[in-house]
Amino acid sequence: MHVKPLTENEIRSSFVNASKREVSQASLPVLDGLDWERLEYLGWRDSKRPLGYAVVVIDDVPTGIILRAAPPPTALGGRRRSAICAWCEDPIETKDVSLYVAKRGGAAGRKGDTIGTLICTEFVCSSNVRRKPTFTELGSDDPTDRELFIERRIAGLTERSAKFVAAI
């Protein structure tokens, strides 16, 4: 299920783990030109702060979260390691994955409770799941098998991203 086109007001009102101040200060993506039919969720990064945002559809309701990006290991003196995004689970695009942490909604979030996961740093999961699978991944060159494989990856992304946001 893809995200239906959203307005700036719909995006701002969708956040479930943010204060009014955080919502008003949230940077919003450029909505013009987005291919909504090819987005299982709307995700973007703040260009000035270490924040990410995601709006996922849960029970036909757009549900937004604000995420804080952990500093990359290289910023901490370590070397950057490859990782698999927990949402798209793409085994090829593993270099640009970051730990994102979100405070929980409601009283739990006000107490400081958080939940984290590895997500593609630039929120490109929707294009990753549509990537032509390698022969090793698919075990076939059949176009029908390829379409079914991509459909399963899209469904998995939809399910995993919604499950994470629902846990918030």
Rank of each mutant, 00 (worst) to 15 (best):
D60N: 11
V61F: 06
P62V: 09
P62L: 07
P62K: 05
P62S: 08
P62Q: 06
T63M: 10
G64Y: 10
I65T: 14
I66W: 01
L67T: 08
L67A: 14
R68G: 00
A69H: 02
A70G: 00
P72R: 13
P73Q: 02
P73K: 04
T74A: 07
T74V: 02
T74N: 02
A75P: 00
L76E: 11
G77V: 03
G77D: 05
G78Q: 07
G78T: 00
R79G: 00
R79V: 00
R81C: 09
R81N: 12
S82W: 00
A83Q: 12
I84H: 09
I84K: 13
I84N: 08
I84S: 09
C85I: 09
C85V: 07
A86V: 03
W87Q: 08
W87G: 07
W87N: 11
C88A: 09
C88T: 04
E89M: 11
P91T: 13
P91G: 11
P91S: 13
I92R: 12
E93W: 06
E93Q: 14
E93K: 11
T94L: 01
T94C: 05
T94S: 06
S98D: 11
S98C: 07
S98V: 02
L99H: 05
L99S: 04
Y100R: 08
K103W: 08
G105H: 10
G106Q: 07
G106K: 07
G106Y: 07
G106L: 12
A107S: 14
A107T: 14
G109S: 08
R110S: 15
R110C: 12
G112V: 10
D113L: 15
T114A: 01
I115Q: 11
G116H: 10
T117I: 13
L118V: 02
L118F: 14
C120H: 09
T121F: 07
E122S: 14
E122Q: 11
E122C: 10
E122Y: 10
C125I: 04
C125W: 03
S126M: 01
S126C: 03
S127H: 05
S127Q: 13
N128W: 03
V129N: 01
V129K: 01
R130G: 01
R131Q: 13
K132V: 12
P133R: 08
P133L: 09
T134W: 02
T134C: 06
T134E: 08
T136R: 12
T136M: 06
T136Q: 11
E137W: 04
E137G: 05
L138T: 05
L138V: 08
L138Q: 05
S140H: 06
S140K: 06
S140N: 04
S140V: 04
D142T: 00
D142H: 00
P143W: 05
P143R: 03
T144L: 02
D145L: 00
R146P: 02
R146T: 15
R146C: 14
E147P: 01
L148W: 04
L148K: 14
L148Y: 04
F149G: 12
I150T: 15
I150F: 11
I150G: 10
I150K: 14
I150M: 12
E151T: 13
E151P: 02
